[in-house]
């Protein structure tokens, strides 16, 4: 992979999107290697502060994916997460961080194809941003 390619940090729910990634893999569906995966037990485990921290420390984009509404294995984790993500997304965009850097999705365990499409979409979206590094990035 070209080192100039964007680095995208993704948080995938163990019960759905992570399994979706697995299915994409076993079905031999190709998706861009830019997506680095962190497996989480539920989208409700994703503290939106992770987004700030990731962009600050060098991720070019962040992608968070969980179970479809109604399908969360803990019943309501994704409903709470939806409100939290909404707030952080509005804040991020309001201060002038490019909206393309942040993507949320619902991908189920059976949606290997959707996983592939999302991974391509997220990568292309981040590539479209003119400045390579996010304004929040600071070299340590």
């Amino acid at each position: 992979m070209d080192t100039k390619d964007p680095k995208i940090l993704s948080f995938l729910c163990n019960w759905c999107s992570y399994a979706g990634a697995d299915l994409a893999g076993t079905s031999r569906l190709q998706y861009p290697p830019n997506v680095r995966v962190i497996r989480v037990p539920c989208s409700g485990r994703v503290n939106p502060q992770f987004i700030v921290k990731a962009l600050r420390d060098g991720a070019d984009g962040v992608w968070i994916s969980g179970c479809h509404p109604g399908d969360c294995h803990y019943n309501s984790g994704n409903y709470f997460a939806r409100r939290r993500f909404y707030i952080m997304k509005e804040l991020i965009e309001f201060v002038g961080i490019e909206p393309e850097r942040l993507t949320f999705s619902w991908v189920s365990a059976s949606e290997g194809k959707k996983f592939q499409e999302m991974a391509i979409y997220v990568t292309e979206r981040v590539k479209k941003v003119k400045d390579k590094k996010s304004p929040l990035y600071k070299e340590i």
Binding site: P69, R82, R83, F85, Y86, T103, F104, S105, W106
Partner: peptide, 8 residues
């Protein structure tokens, strides 16, 4: 029915 149109 919360706002969810920003999630793909």
């Amino acid at each position: 029915e919360d706002k969810g149109d920003f999630i793909k």
